[in-house]
């Protein structure tokens, strides 16, 4: 619905928009915005929301298998938080013009994407530790950078999400420390999980990007490049792994003081491209789960939306 009474040309409005974002102003859902910004922001936030919902599935598989009641409770609470983030984010995406029901439909039809790390199996309790520590850590690094996003509603909702993610991150580190201070078998289990997850975590940040080619960076929707985020992640997490005697499968990984950054080896990006095409190791299984949950819980939506019809049914 276009209620815009501003009769200036799109070029002129776009130029003003650019000045606003460069001055650090926040863009609101009701403000005029270039179509490229709206579409880019919608796609980005929708994928974030999808990832929260889909990210609940690999961890959920471990709730029943968690080694103690306390771990079961904390993992359940974390999964509940992630689903809550999905809920908060779909609302933000919805205001950019796509109904929530359409976003859910597109997700389960495999038409829209979710983060690469949720296309992999979780084989052992060590995987739960890797997700809680390294993957939540990677997500926290990227989300903290988005707190400065030019899109106001997203930046605001991320404040709450980051507070909860930082709790998850503590939960993850607690898990990792327990395993690394434990038996040889526990340490080996965590090391094995780190070995398997290293490349997917590098993929999570994406290839080193060319800032000039990313419209979301241009519009200050994003404020850091893929490489800046990966470097931040290395500085925060690699020394912690090394102190625990955990190695990562990249012989080149080391801080280069002269360059002021970490040296690392680019992985083969083909598995990431395969996931982007909807052909990851667990893509079909997880989408089938999501589809089944959606259908099996249809009655809940009916009760919530139309209680009289649900009672008559």
């Amino acid at each position: 619905m276009d209620t815009d009474t501003d009769t200036r040309t799109v070029e002129s409005k776009t130029a003003d928009f650019q000045i606003r974002v460069e001055a650090g102003e926040k863009i609101e859902a009701s403000d005029w915005m270039p179509e490229g910004y709206r579409q880019g922001a919608l796609k980005f936030i929708e994928m974030h929301a999808n990832s929260e919902i889909m990210g609940a599935l690999p961890e959920r598989e471990w709730i029943a298998r968690a080694p103690s009641l306390r771990r079961k409770l904390s993992l359940t609470a974390k999964v509940q938080d992630e689903v809550g983030h999905g809920h908060l984010l779909y609302r933000i995406a919805e205001d950019l013009g796509k109904p929530r029901a359409a976003m859910i439909e597109d997700l389960i039809a495999g038409k829209t994407k979710f983060h690469n790390v949720f296309h992999y199996p979780t084989e052992t309790w060590g995987d739960v530790a890797v997700i809680g520590f390294l993957i939540d850590g990677a997500a926290l690094v990227t989300q903290k950078a988005l707190l400065d996003s030019s899109y106001g509603p997203y930046a605001r909702v991320l404040k709450r999400i980051c507070a909860e993610e930082s709790l998850h991150q503590r939960h993850g580190e607690d898990l990792v420390l327990e395993m690394c201070a434990g038996t040889d078998e526990q340490r080996a289990m965590f090391q094995d999980a780190v070995n398997r997850w290293w490349v997917p975590v590098m993929h999570f940040f994406g290839p080193p990007s060319k800032p000039t080619l990313d419209p979301l960076l241009h519009w200050r929707f994003k404020t850091a490049t893929n490489e800046e985020l990966r470097q931040r992640f290395f500085s925060l997490y690699i020394p912690k792994l090394w102190d625990m005697g955990i190695t990562v499968p990249d012989p080149a990984l080391e801080y280069d003081a002269a360059a002021g950054e970490w040296a690392w080896t680019e992985p083969d990006w083909e598995p990431l491209r395969r996931i982007a095409r909807g052909d990851g190791p667990m893509t079909e299984t997880r989408l089938a789960w999501r589809r089944w949950i959606h259908e099996a819980h249809g009655w809940v939506r009916l009760v919530m939306a139309e209680p009289e019809r649900a009672a008559a049914a």
Binding site: L177, A181, D243, M244
Partner: peptide, 9 residues
């Protein structure tokens, strides 16, 4: 806990 894990390592 970090110190404990570091001592073990």
């Amino acid at each position: 806990k970090r110190r404990l894990a570091a001592a073990r390592a």
